[in-house]
């Protein structure tokens, strides 16, 4: 799957012995999620659109995989198919070797938008999963307290979601997904709506949770720093149709700290992804990257210059 050696940015493929050994350990673990030749087509008024084509990858137990790509590359479609919320057109999604059919408790999901139930308190939100699987209220209550403790929100157990900040709400959403003890946690740009500072805290917090639990994470993002900081491997998608461009083994050693953002391996990995998802534009192809497209009409006093 790896792309041919790129001479200008060689170091992202060079792994220290510890990192190489770490990847070996990951690949020795069992496969939790396997996606084989997955494709998705749907009908639009303009005809048939191919959102995903021939997606192939495996996620191993306790691995942290990020999916990154420009907007419209189908990364949200991919995670919705994995969660069972959308149907795929071709190929297989196997969880522990068994095909996925509709949503299920074995795949927890954290959404970008606020998906907490506004009419339930924080604790009742977390109790929702256990109650749905037939646990008594008492058991559900105990489990919820335990998981709220883990995300550090015990004090807010009886608050309503609208009383919490954005970061806290996402922590509740994580606890609510984890209480079901899913095989894999699917996260769809979970920190996308947070401010930079909260987002950094949440990334750190998520790594903490991941380290201390037997949980596998598939994480969608459009933020390069976030992907390199969090992931073992990064799945880079390209748009129209969504295809796997490269699966990058992140050579940044663990444990990760924000100090590594400036390390050469981090920068090299980021540069490689940057090059993949924002390739040099051929003339007139990408309108977004071409702000000089037309003359700008001036709506203010001609003599009133800001620059």
């Amino acid at each position: 799957m790896n792309a041919p050696q790129n001479n200008s940015q060689p170091s992202y493929l060079e792994q220290s012995p510890e990192v190489r050994e770490r990847f070996q350990r990951i690949y020795d673990r069992e496969t939790i999620l396997e996606v084989r030749q997955l494709s998705k087509r749907y009908q639009t008024p303009q005809g048939e659109t191919e959102a995903l084509r021939g997606i192939d990858f495996k996620v191993h137990r306790r691995e942290f995989v990020c999916v990154i790509g420009p907007s419209g590359c189908g990364k949200s479609t991919l995670i919705r198919i994995l969660a069972g919320l959308d149907k795929h057109s071709d190929g297989d999604v196997l969880l522990d070797g068994k095909p996925v059919n509709g949503p299920g408790r074995d795949r927890g999901m954290v959404f970008q938008g606020y998906s907490l139930f506004p009419w339930l308190t924080v604790k009742e939100n977390v109790m929702f999963g256990p109650e749905m699987s037939g646990h008594t209220r008492n058991t559900a209550d105990n489990q919820a307290r335990q998981w709220l403790d883990l995300v550090g929100l015990s004090k807010f157990a009886d608050s309503y979601p609208h009383q919490l900040s954005g970061g806290m709400r996402q922590r509740v959403a994580i606890a609510r997904a984890l209480v079901n003890e899913p095989r894999i946690l699917l996260m769809d740009e979970p920190f996308g709506a947070l401010d930079a500072q909260t987002r950094a805290k949440m990334q750190h917090h998520l790594l903490d949770i991941w380290k201390n639990l037997d949980i596998t994470i598939l994480f969608i993002t459009h933020d390069l720093d976030e992907a390199v900081y969090l992931a073992d491997r990064i799945l880079v998608l390209k748009p129209h149709p969504g295809e796997v461009q490269e699966i990058i083994e992140v050579p940044v050693p663990r444990p990760r700290t924000p100090a590594q953002f400036d390390s050469p391996v981090f920068r090299a990995t980021k540069a490689r992804i940057e090059a993949l998802i924002h390739p040099p534009v051929e003339s007139g192809e990408d309108e977004e990257n071409n702000p000089e497209a037309g003359p700008m009409i001036r709506f203010t006093n001609v003599t009133d210059n800001v620059e």
Binding site: L85, G108, F111
Partner: peptide, 11 residues
């Protein structure tokens, strides 16, 4: 999203 969240939680 609320319905989808509930479905992924087994409802």
């Amino acid at each position: 999203t609320l319905i989808e969240a509930a479905r992924t939680l087994g409802s």
